[in-house]
């Protein structure tokens, strides 16, 4: 039995295909990717969530602790 996050991430990505401007989906996707170790992907979705007006501070803080020295603010700012 495999207890991975893949199915949940896929479910969210499918939901985002239908509703790309849903900031909460982006935020949840960022959280799941972060949990799964894909920090780059997480940061991208975090930025999209922020663009949709979601307060991303809690997850950004969590990621900062997780990544230590990497400056997530700059990365998020420079992402498309």
């Amino acid at each position: 039995m495999v207890y991975e996050l893949g199915p949940a991430i896929e479910a969210l990505q499918r939901a985002l295909q239908r509703d790309p401007s849903n900031g909460i989906y982006h935020y949840a996707c960022a959280a799941l990717l972060a949990l799964d170790g894909d920090l780059q992907g997480a940061v991208q979705h975090l930025h999209r969530a922020e663009q949709q007006g979601v307060d991303v501070t809690p997850l950004r803080e969590w990621l900062r602790r997780k990544r230590g020295s990497i400056n997530l603010g700059q990365e998020a700012d420079s992402s498309p």
Binding site: L12, P58, L59
Partner: peptide, 23 residues
Amino acid sequence: LPGLNGDLQKKLLRLAQINRRIH
């Protein structure tokens, strides 16, 4: 979920269908 405060949690819970799939 990491970075899930009370407000975001409520918003996510309102999206019942996706929440049911992922939680």
